[in-house]
Design a protein around this nucleic acid. Structure first.
Lengths: 160, 160
DNA sequence: TTCATTAGTTACATGGCATAACGAAAAACC
DNA sequence: GGTTTTTCGTTATGCCATGTAACTAATGAA
Protein backbone atom coordinates (compact mmCIF):
# COMPACT_ATOMS: atom_id res chain seq x y z
CA UNK A 1 0.00 0.00 0.00
CA UNK A 2 1.17 3.48 -0.83
CA UNK A 3 0.63 4.67 2.74
CA UNK A 4 -2.43 4.36 4.90
CA UNK A 5 -3.33 8.01 4.41
CA UNK A 6 -2.85 8.18 0.65
CA UNK A 7 -6.46 9.29 0.16
CA UNK A 8 -5.91 12.21 2.49
CA UNK A 9 -2.55 13.12 1.02
CA UNK A 10 -4.37 14.28 -2.06
CA UNK A 11 -5.76 17.19 -0.09
CA UNK A 12 -3.77 20.33 0.52
CA UNK A 13 -5.53 20.77 3.85
CA UNK A 14 -4.23 17.47 5.18
CA UNK A 15 -0.61 18.11 4.27
CA UNK A 16 -1.00 21.61 5.65
CA UNK A 17 -2.47 20.51 8.95
CA UNK A 18 0.41 18.13 9.53
CA UNK A 19 3.04 20.66 8.54
CA UNK A 20 1.42 23.39 10.57
CA UNK A 21 1.09 21.30 13.71
CA UNK A 22 4.83 20.68 13.65
CA UNK A 23 5.61 24.31 12.90
CA UNK A 24 3.38 25.45 15.72
CA UNK A 25 4.96 23.07 18.19
CA UNK A 26 8.45 24.18 17.23
CA UNK A 27 7.73 27.88 17.15
CA UNK A 28 6.04 27.75 20.53
CA UNK A 29 9.07 25.98 21.96
CA UNK A 30 11.27 28.66 20.40
CA UNK A 31 9.13 31.46 21.86
CA UNK A 32 8.76 29.98 25.32
CA UNK A 33 12.07 31.39 26.62
CA UNK A 34 10.75 34.84 25.75
CA UNK A 35 7.51 34.21 27.58
CA UNK A 36 5.67 34.43 24.28
CA UNK A 37 3.26 32.24 22.38
CA UNK A 38 2.50 32.35 18.67
CA UNK A 39 -0.39 34.80 19.09
CA UNK A 40 1.31 37.08 21.57
CA UNK A 41 4.38 37.15 19.36
CA UNK A 42 2.27 38.13 16.37
CA UNK A 43 0.53 40.87 18.30
CA UNK A 44 3.82 42.17 19.64
CA UNK A 45 5.31 42.43 16.14
CA UNK A 46 2.33 44.28 14.70
CA UNK A 47 2.21 46.71 17.62
CA UNK A 48 5.90 47.43 17.32
CA UNK A 49 5.52 48.11 13.59
CA UNK A 50 2.35 50.18 14.05
CA UNK A 51 2.65 52.40 17.14
CA UNK A 52 -0.60 53.86 18.40
CA UNK A 53 -2.60 50.98 16.93
CA UNK A 54 -6.11 50.48 18.34
CA UNK A 55 -7.25 47.11 19.59
CA UNK A 56 -10.07 46.67 17.09
CA UNK A 57 -7.71 47.36 14.23
CA UNK A 58 -5.20 44.86 15.60
CA UNK A 59 -7.93 42.25 15.85
CA UNK A 60 -8.82 42.89 12.20
CA UNK A 61 -5.21 42.59 11.12
CA UNK A 62 -4.62 39.32 12.94
CA UNK A 63 -8.08 38.05 12.02
CA UNK A 64 -8.99 37.26 15.62
CA UNK A 65 -12.06 38.28 17.60
CA UNK A 66 -11.85 41.26 19.90
CA UNK A 67 -12.63 39.30 23.04
CA UNK A 68 -9.67 37.02 22.42
CA UNK A 69 -7.36 39.94 21.97
CA UNK A 70 -8.11 41.17 25.47
CA UNK A 71 -6.34 38.28 27.17
CA UNK A 72 -3.49 38.43 24.69
CA UNK A 73 -2.89 42.08 25.51
CA UNK A 74 -3.34 41.45 29.23
CA UNK A 75 -0.55 38.93 28.83
CA UNK A 76 1.74 41.32 26.97
CA UNK A 77 0.98 44.17 29.36
CA UNK A 78 1.61 42.01 32.43
CA UNK A 79 5.00 41.12 30.96
CA UNK A 80 5.69 44.84 30.50
CA UNK A 81 6.14 44.48 26.75
CA UNK A 82 3.17 46.59 25.68
CA UNK A 83 1.16 49.47 27.11
CA UNK A 84 -2.46 50.39 26.60
CA UNK A 85 -3.09 54.13 26.64
CA UNK A 86 -6.49 55.76 26.35
CA UNK A 87 -6.82 57.64 23.12
CA UNK A 88 -7.07 61.43 23.38
CA UNK A 89 -9.62 61.72 20.59
CA UNK A 90 -11.69 58.65 21.44
CA UNK A 91 -11.74 57.84 25.12
CA UNK A 92 -13.29 54.43 24.50
CA UNK A 93 -10.29 53.21 22.55
CA UNK A 94 -6.78 52.26 23.61
CA UNK A 95 -3.62 53.06 21.72
CA UNK A 96 -1.06 50.31 21.81
CA UNK A 97 2.68 50.77 21.92
CA UNK A 98 5.60 48.54 22.79
CA UNK A 99 7.80 49.38 25.74
CA UNK A 100 11.58 49.54 25.42
CA UNK A 101 11.67 46.03 26.79
CA UNK A 102 8.99 45.01 24.34
CA UNK A 103 10.99 46.29 21.39
CA UNK A 104 14.06 44.45 22.61
CA UNK A 105 12.24 41.17 23.19
CA UNK A 106 10.54 41.54 19.83
CA UNK A 107 13.89 41.88 18.08
CA UNK A 108 15.32 38.82 19.74
CA UNK A 109 12.18 36.79 19.21
CA UNK A 110 12.04 37.72 15.54
CA UNK A 111 15.63 36.56 15.14
CA UNK A 112 14.81 33.28 16.90
CA UNK A 113 11.75 32.71 14.75
CA UNK A 114 13.81 33.46 11.65
CA UNK A 115 16.15 30.65 12.63
CA UNK A 116 13.16 28.42 13.26
CA UNK A 117 11.75 29.29 9.86
CA UNK A 118 15.03 28.47 8.15
CA UNK A 119 15.11 25.14 9.97
CA UNK A 120 11.60 24.22 8.90
CA UNK A 121 12.19 25.16 5.27
CA UNK A 122 15.60 23.56 5.01
CA UNK A 123 15.88 21.28 2.01
CA UNK A 124 13.81 23.73 -0.02
CA UNK A 125 15.33 26.16 -2.50
CA UNK A 126 14.71 29.87 -2.12
CA UNK A 127 12.41 29.82 -5.12
CA UNK A 128 10.43 26.97 -3.59
CA UNK A 129 9.92 28.89 -0.39
CA UNK A 130 8.80 31.89 -2.40
CA UNK A 131 6.35 29.71 -4.29
CA UNK A 132 5.11 28.36 -0.96
CA UNK A 133 4.40 31.88 0.30
CA UNK A 134 2.63 32.71 -2.93
CA UNK A 135 0.46 29.59 -2.80
CA UNK A 136 -0.47 30.13 0.84
CA UNK A 137 -1.48 33.72 0.19
CA UNK A 138 -3.56 32.68 -2.77
CA UNK A 139 -5.33 30.14 -0.59
CA UNK A 140 -5.93 32.80 2.04
CA UNK A 141 -7.45 34.98 -0.64
CA UNK A 142 -9.64 32.15 -1.92
CA UNK A 143 -10.68 31.27 1.60
CA UNK A 144 -11.74 34.81 2.34
CA UNK A 145 -13.95 35.20 -0.68
CA UNK A 146 -15.49 31.84 0.12
CA UNK A 147 -16.40 32.85 3.65
CA UNK A 148 -17.51 36.35 2.71
CA UNK A 149 -18.30 36.77 -0.97
CA UNK A 150 -18.45 40.54 -0.72
CA UNK A 151 -15.03 40.71 0.85
CA UNK A 152 -12.00 41.97 -0.95
CA UNK A 153 -10.48 44.21 1.71
CA UNK A 154 -10.89 42.78 5.23
CA UNK A 155 -7.24 42.03 5.69
CA UNK A 156 -4.25 44.13 6.67
CA UNK A 157 -4.26 47.39 4.81
CA UNK A 158 -2.68 50.74 5.43
CA UNK A 159 -4.60 53.05 7.74
CA UNK A 160 -6.43 55.88 5.93
CA UNK B 1 3.40 51.04 5.04
CA UNK B 2 3.57 47.72 3.24
CA UNK B 3 0.94 46.18 5.53
CA UNK B 4 0.79 46.12 9.27
CA UNK B 5 1.89 42.50 9.43
CA UNK B 6 4.77 42.72 6.96
CA UNK B 7 7.21 41.49 9.59
CA UNK B 8 5.14 38.37 10.12
CA UNK B 9 4.56 37.78 6.43
CA UNK B 10 8.22 36.84 6.17
CA UNK B 11 7.48 33.67 8.12
CA UNK B 12 6.04 30.61 6.49
CA UNK B 13 4.26 29.76 9.71
CA UNK B 14 2.26 32.97 9.66
CA UNK B 15 1.07 32.61 6.10
CA UNK B 16 0.30 28.99 6.84
CA UNK B 17 -1.69 29.69 9.96
CA UNK B 18 -3.88 32.14 8.10
CA UNK B 19 -4.36 29.86 5.12
CA UNK B 20 -5.03 26.86 7.31
CA UNK B 21 -7.57 28.62 9.49
CA UNK B 22 -9.60 29.43 6.40
CA UNK B 23 -9.22 25.94 4.98
CA UNK B 24 -10.29 24.42 8.27
CA UNK B 25 -13.32 26.64 8.51
CA UNK B 26 -14.39 25.83 4.99
CA UNK B 27 -13.75 22.11 5.17
CA UNK B 28 -15.63 21.83 8.43
CA UNK B 29 -18.58 23.61 6.85
CA UNK B 30 -18.35 21.22 3.92
CA UNK B 31 -18.26 18.18 6.20
CA UNK B 32 -21.01 19.30 8.55
CA UNK B 33 -23.84 17.96 6.36
CA UNK B 34 -22.19 14.54 6.64
CA UNK B 35 -22.00 14.82 10.41
CA UNK B 36 -18.21 14.83 10.12
CA UNK B 37 -15.42 17.06 11.32
CA UNK B 38 -11.91 17.26 9.91
CA UNK B 39 -10.56 14.62 12.31
CA UNK B 40 -13.44 12.21 12.03
CA UNK B 41 -13.27 12.50 8.26
CA UNK B 42 -9.58 11.71 8.30
CA UNK B 43 -10.09 8.69 10.53
CA UNK B 44 -12.96 7.45 8.37
CA UNK B 45 -10.84 7.62 5.22
CA UNK B 46 -7.91 5.76 6.73
CA UNK B 47 -10.15 3.05 8.18
CA UNK B 48 -11.89 2.58 4.87
CA UNK B 49 -8.55 2.25 3.11
CA UNK B 50 -7.10 -0.04 5.76
CA UNK B 51 -9.72 -2.51 6.97
CA UNK B 52 -8.93 -4.27 10.23
CA UNK B 53 -6.75 -1.38 11.39
CA UNK B 54 -6.00 -1.23 15.13
CA UNK B 55 -6.60 1.96 17.10
CA UNK B 56 -2.98 2.47 18.13
CA UNK B 57 -1.88 2.22 14.54
CA UNK B 58 -4.50 4.71 13.45
CA UNK B 59 -3.34 7.11 16.11
CA UNK B 60 0.22 6.76 14.81
CA UNK B 61 -0.88 7.38 11.24
CA UNK B 62 -2.89 10.49 12.07
CA UNK B 63 -0.29 11.65 14.59
CA UNK B 64 -2.82 12.04 17.36
CA UNK B 65 -2.73 10.69 20.90
CA UNK B 66 -4.61 7.50 21.68
CA UNK B 67 -6.90 9.09 24.26
CA UNK B 68 -8.14 11.58 21.71
CA UNK B 69 -8.87 8.87 19.21
CA UNK B 70 -11.32 7.24 21.59
CA UNK B 71 -13.85 10.04 21.34
CA UNK B 72 -13.35 10.31 17.60
CA UNK B 73 -14.18 6.63 17.17
CA UNK B 74 -17.08 6.87 19.61
CA UNK B 75 -18.38 9.56 17.34
CA UNK B 76 -17.98 7.49 14.18
CA UNK B 77 -19.40 4.40 15.81
CA UNK B 78 -22.42 6.27 17.17
CA UNK B 79 -23.11 7.48 13.62
CA UNK B 80 -22.90 3.87 12.44
CA UNK B 81 -20.05 4.63 10.07
CA UNK B 82 -17.42 2.47 11.76
CA UNK B 83 -17.38 -0.66 13.93
CA UNK B 84 -14.90 -1.72 16.59
CA UNK B 85 -14.42 -5.48 16.78
CA UNK B 86 -12.22 -7.25 19.26
CA UNK B 87 -9.24 -8.83 17.59
CA UNK B 88 -9.14 -12.64 17.55
CA UNK B 89 -5.37 -12.78 18.09
CA UNK B 90 -5.10 -9.92 20.57
CA UNK B 91 -8.15 -9.53 22.71
CA UNK B 92 -6.98 -6.17 24.02
CA UNK B 93 -7.10 -4.56 20.61
CA UNK B 94 -9.97 -3.53 18.37
CA UNK B 95 -10.07 -3.97 14.64
CA UNK B 96 -11.68 -1.09 12.81
CA UNK B 97 -13.81 -1.37 9.71
CA UNK B 98 -16.25 0.93 7.97
CA UNK B 99 -19.88 -0.07 7.65
CA UNK B 100 -21.66 0.01 4.32
CA UNK B 101 -23.03 3.39 5.32
CA UNK B 102 -19.54 4.46 6.34
CA UNK B 103 -18.13 3.59 2.94
CA UNK B 104 -20.92 5.47 1.23
CA UNK B 105 -20.58 8.57 3.39
CA UNK B 106 -16.83 8.42 2.94
CA UNK B 107 -17.17 8.45 -0.82
CA UNK B 108 -19.50 11.41 -0.82
CA UNK B 109 -17.43 13.31 1.71
CA UNK B 110 -14.26 12.73 -0.27
CA UNK B 111 -15.95 14.11 -3.34
CA UNK B 112 -17.13 17.15 -1.40
CA UNK B 113 -13.67 17.75 0.04
CA UNK B 114 -12.19 17.43 -3.43
CA UNK B 115 -14.45 20.24 -4.57
CA UNK B 116 -13.44 22.24 -1.51
CA UNK B 117 -9.78 21.62 -2.29
CA UNK B 118 -10.21 22.78 -5.87
CA UNK B 119 -11.93 25.91 -4.61
CA UNK B 120 -9.16 26.73 -2.18
CA UNK B 121 -6.40 26.17 -4.73
CA UNK B 122 -8.14 27.98 -7.56
CA UNK B 123 -5.90 30.53 -9.18
CA UNK B 124 -2.95 28.18 -8.81
CA UNK B 125 -1.60 26.07 -11.64
CA UNK B 126 -1.38 22.32 -11.28
CA UNK B 127 2.39 22.55 -10.99
CA UNK B 128 2.06 25.14 -8.24
CA UNK B 129 -0.25 22.88 -6.26
CA UNK B 130 2.21 20.03 -6.71
CA UNK B 131 5.01 22.26 -5.48
CA UNK B 132 2.85 23.22 -2.50
CA UNK B 133 2.37 19.57 -1.56
CA UNK B 134 6.07 18.96 -1.91
CA UNK B 135 6.99 21.94 0.25
CA UNK B 136 4.48 21.00 2.95
CA UNK B 137 5.78 17.44 3.09
CA UNK B 138 9.34 18.65 3.32
CA UNK B 139 8.35 20.87 6.24
CA UNK B 140 6.61 17.95 7.90
CA UNK B 141 9.80 15.95 7.51
CA UNK B 142 11.91 18.77 8.92
CA UNK B 143 9.50 19.25 11.79
CA UNK B 144 9.65 15.61 12.74
CA UNK B 145 13.40 15.41 12.89
CA UNK B 146 13.40 18.60 14.97
CA UNK B 147 11.01 17.18 17.53
CA UNK B 148 12.57 13.74 17.57
CA UNK B 149 16.15 13.66 16.26
CA UNK B 150 16.22 9.86 16.10
CA UNK B 151 13.07 9.72 14.05
CA UNK B 152 12.94 8.84 10.42
CA UNK B 153 10.01 6.42 10.37
CA UNK B 154 7.25 7.46 12.77
CA UNK B 155 4.80 8.34 10.06
CA UNK B 156 2.50 6.30 7.87
CA UNK B 157 4.27 3.24 6.53
CA UNK B 158 3.12 -0.08 5.25
CA UNK B 159 2.47 -2.72 7.89
CA UNK B 160 5.18 -5.41 8.07
C1' DT C 1 -32.16 64.69 24.12
C1' DT C 2 -32.63 60.30 22.56
C1' DC C 3 -31.13 56.45 20.05
C1' DA C 4 -27.99 53.71 17.49
C1' DT C 5 -23.21 52.52 17.05
C1' DT C 6 -18.60 51.47 18.45
C1' DA C 7 -14.53 50.07 21.75
C1' DG C 8 -13.27 47.21 25.07
C1' DT C 9 -14.59 43.92 28.26
C1' DT C 10 -16.77 39.83 30.76
C1' DA C 11 -18.73 35.40 30.90
C1' DC C 12 -19.32 31.29 28.78
C1' DA C 13 -19.19 27.33 25.52
C1' DT C 14 -16.70 24.50 22.37
C1' DG C 15 -13.05 21.92 20.19
C1' DG C 16 -8.25 20.42 19.71
C1' DC C 17 -4.73 18.32 21.95
C1' DA C 18 -1.63 16.65 25.70
C1' DT C 19 -0.57 13.97 30.13
C1' DA C 20 -1.36 10.83 34.01
C1' DA C 21 -3.31 6.88 35.60
C1' DC C 22 -6.16 2.80 35.37
C1' DG C 23 -7.87 -2.30 34.17
C1' DA C 24 -7.28 -5.93 31.07
C1' DA C 25 -4.64 -8.72 28.24
C1' DA C 26 -0.34 -10.11 26.21
C1' DA C 27 4.71 -10.81 26.21
C1' DA C 28 9.00 -11.36 28.47
C1' DC C 29 11.44 -13.32 32.02
C1' DC C 30 13.27 -16.48 35.46
C1' DG D 1 4.31 -21.82 35.91
C1' DG D 2 4.16 -17.79 38.10
C1' DT D 3 5.95 -12.96 38.23
C1' DT D 4 7.07 -8.76 36.02
C1' DT D 5 6.85 -5.70 32.21
C1' DT D 6 4.72 -3.97 28.30
C1' DT D 7 0.87 -2.83 25.39
C1' DC D 8 -4.19 -1.63 24.28
C1' DG D 9 -7.98 0.97 25.05
C1' DT D 10 -9.98 3.88 28.27
C1' DT D 11 -11.07 7.60 31.82
C1' DA D 12 -10.24 11.85 33.90
C1' DT D 13 -8.26 16.12 33.66
C1' DG D 14 -6.30 20.41 32.13
C1' DC D 15 -4.57 23.81 28.94
C1' DC D 16 -4.96 26.62 24.96
C1' DA D 17 -7.28 28.51 20.99
C1' DT D 18 -11.30 30.29 19.35
C1' DG D 19 -16.17 31.85 18.92
C1' DT D 20 -20.72 34.12 20.65
C1' DA D 21 -23.68 36.80 23.64
C1' DA D 22 -24.22 40.38 26.58
C1' DC D 23 -22.61 44.20 29.26
C1' DT D 24 -20.33 49.37 30.08
C1' DA D 25 -18.87 53.38 28.61
C1' DA D 26 -18.23 56.69 25.15
C1' DT D 27 -19.27 58.53 20.63
C1' DG D 28 -22.15 60.29 16.99
C1' DA D 29 -26.37 61.00 14.53
C1' DA D 30 -31.54 62.06 14.39
Amino acid sequence: MAGADSTLRRFVGYDMKRAFNLIQGDVNAVLKPFGLRMVTFSALCVIRDTPGLKQSRLAQILMIERPNLVLILDDLERADLVVRERSREDRRAFELTVTALGAQVCNQAVAAVERHDARMTSGLEGAEVQALHKALRQIELNGRSVNDPSDRSTGPVSPP
